[in-house]
Amino acid sequence: MKEKGWKEIPIGGLILEPGNAEKYLTGSWRTFRPVVNKEKCTSCLLCWIYCPDDSIIVEDEQMKGFRYEHCKGCGICKNVCPFKAIEMVEESKYQQIEK
């Protein structure tokens, strides 16, 4: 985001766009990446309700994966999953597999 000059900043330093923190990508904080095994996943959505960063993608009541641009890699989803469907993979290793 470009820095604003004093004439452009709203009076009182108000932020006029609700929820614009979404533009700030916290995914770069991550050292371990959650990876889901869809065969084990039953979409109980416990990972979704316990995610501090709202980074679980849920479509039509189904767990569809992670928002990697915001996921900080805390691993809560792995820990609360009753079916052990989520695994934390080291980011560097994952990128090697990708290549």
């Binding site: 501090p52 960063d53 980074s55 900080k72």
Partner: peptide
């Protein structure tokens, strides 16, 4: 939880609290 998942999220992602924060 499935019914709740249709609701609009009111706290956006991209906030800068620590990973794993309870708040």
């Amino acid at each position: 939880l499935k019914e709740l998942s249709h609701k609009k999220e009111l706290l956006s992602r991209g906030h800068r609290l620590c990973p794993g924060c309870g708040a």
